[in-house]
Amino acid sequence: MSEHVIGEKSEVLFHFSIKLEDGSAADSTKVHNKPAKLFMGDGSLTENFEKCLLGLKAGESKSFDLEPEDAFGQPNPDNIYYVERSKFGPDAPAEVGSIIAFTQPDGTELPGLVREVAGDSVTIDFNHPLAGQKVTFEVDILEVNG
């Protein structure tokens, strides 16, 4: 086992769990036993999240609390859309709480949460489901390279 310490350019293989303020688990890589891989400094995580990982070594575990700004950000009102109810069908009904994948112009799919159905208008929220929430990350560092 190498004694590499996580630095600003490390490649890190780790398991993580995300817990909400009420203690419920929102996500965990352990469910399917598929650890996450991260290249430090690639912009996929916030600066404060990365700072929490700096200095950890393979085999170490850590738990840290993140404010919404350091986790998934605050909800952005520009990510709320109103769609005509006629655009929904039996395979993707407009029901509050449903998550429906919408195909973007570039072909990628973006999940949206149905927030409200009023008459012929359906409110879809494309913000990350954890936006605006304080979360606790628990990480188990498996491997550190570089």
Results as ranks from 00 to 15, higher is better:
D70M: 04
T123D: 02
A118S: 15
N127L: 00
H15Q: 08
K134G: 04
M40I: 14
F126R: 08
L38F: 11
R115L: 13
L45D: 02
A101N: 15
F14P: 09
E116H: 09
A131C: 00
D22P: 04
D120A: 03
F102E: 11
P90G: 01
E95H: 03
D120Y: 01
D22Q: 05
A25P: 00
F39A: 08
I124P: 06
L66V: 09
I100K: 00
L66A: 12
E67P: 02
D27T: 02
D91K: 13
P77I: 13
V117T: 03
E47Y: 13
V122P: 07
P111I: 01
E67Y: 07
L20F: 03
H128E: 08
I99D: 01
E21I: 02
D27Y: 15
A92M: 05
L45F: 08
D125A: 00
Q133F: 01
P77A: 10
G97S: 01
Q74H: 14
A71C: 07
I99K: 05
G23E: 08
P75N: 09
T29K: 08
F126T: 07
L53I: 02
F14D: 10
K34H: 12
N79F: 15
V12T: 03
V114W: 05
N76W: 06
H15R: 05
V122G: 09
P35Y: 10
G73M: 11
V96K: 00
N76S: 14
S44M: 13
C52L: 00
G73T: 13
L113S: 09
Q74S: 12
C52W: 02
V122M: 08
K34W: 06
D22G: 03
L113A: 08
V12R: 06
V122F: 10
A58V: 06
Q104D: 12
V114A: 03
L110N: 11
V12G: 04
L45V: 14
L54D: 05
K87T: 06
D22N: 14
I80D: 08
N33C: 04
A92R: 11
G23C: 04
F72E: 05
G119H: 12
G112C: 03
A131E: 01
F49V: 04
F64P: 00
G73Q: 13
D27V: 02
P93R: 02
I100M: 02
D106W: 05
